[in-house]
């Protein structure tokens, strides 16, 4: 019951801050709202007893959103929203697309939902770490390596794209 309440609380927080990302005039507030939404997701993971993933999410998102806020300040004419600018288009279509997609997913989730026959017990945090470590270095090692190489390639390609061109 307590777990359900926490999942509900952090779920509502994640949605609330997610909506705030697109309803505030200030870019900085948008970045902070996204940070809080992602932090609420991290808290949701912890409420679901996936402690390592929750902490990982919190640490990664704190860094990622700080970088995003920096880019906001760099590229925006008015990052604080002092001079309101219209930065949206096709609002009605987007709203309909968002609502219809969410309703579709909700209807599939509700119609296909079956209560699991046995109550699934989460492994203890240390057992989870050991299990994930084993998974990373045994069965999923190729996927893990591929993810690492993908990040490296993305870093090099991004730096190459963003470098100043000398004519």
């Amino acid at each position: 019951m307590i777990q359900f309440l926490f999942v509900l609380l952090f779920g509502v927080a994640a949605i609330w801050f997610g909506v705030k990302v697109f309803t505030t005039a200030s870019m900085m507030r948008s970045a902070l709202a996204l940070l809080f939404s992602m932090a609420a997701l991290g808290a949701l993971f912890m409420a679901a007893e996936a402690e390592f993933l929750g902490v990982l999410q919190l640490m990664m998102m704190a860094t990622e959103m700080s970088i995003m806020a920096l880019f906001m300040i760099m590229y925006m004419m008015s990052p604080g929203g002092l001079t309101p600018m219209e930065m949206t288009h096709q609002k009605r279509f987007s709203l309909v697309a968002g609502v219809v997609t969410a309703l579709l997913i909700v209807s599939v989730a509700v119609s296909q939902f079956r209560e699991p026959s046995a109550v699934a017990v989460a492994p203890a945090p240390d057992a989870q770490l050991r299990g994930l470590g084993g998974e990373l270095l045994e069965r999923s090692m190729l996927v893990f390596q591929a993810a690492g190489v993908t990040i490296l390639v993305a870093m090099i390609a991004t730096t190459a794209v963003a470098m100043r061109r000398h004519e």
């Binding site: 949206t88 968002g98 997913i105």
Partner: peptide, 27 residues
């Protein structure tokens, strides 16, 4: 709890889709 998580994810996905389609700024 599982269904609650799925519903939260569905709404969050809808909000994200709205944002990705409606915003003109790359960030």
């Amino acid at each position: 709890v599982l269904l609650t998580g799925q519903l939260v994810a569905a709404v969050l996905f809808g909000v994200g889709l709205y944002g990705a389609l409606s915003q003109t700024n790359l960030v």
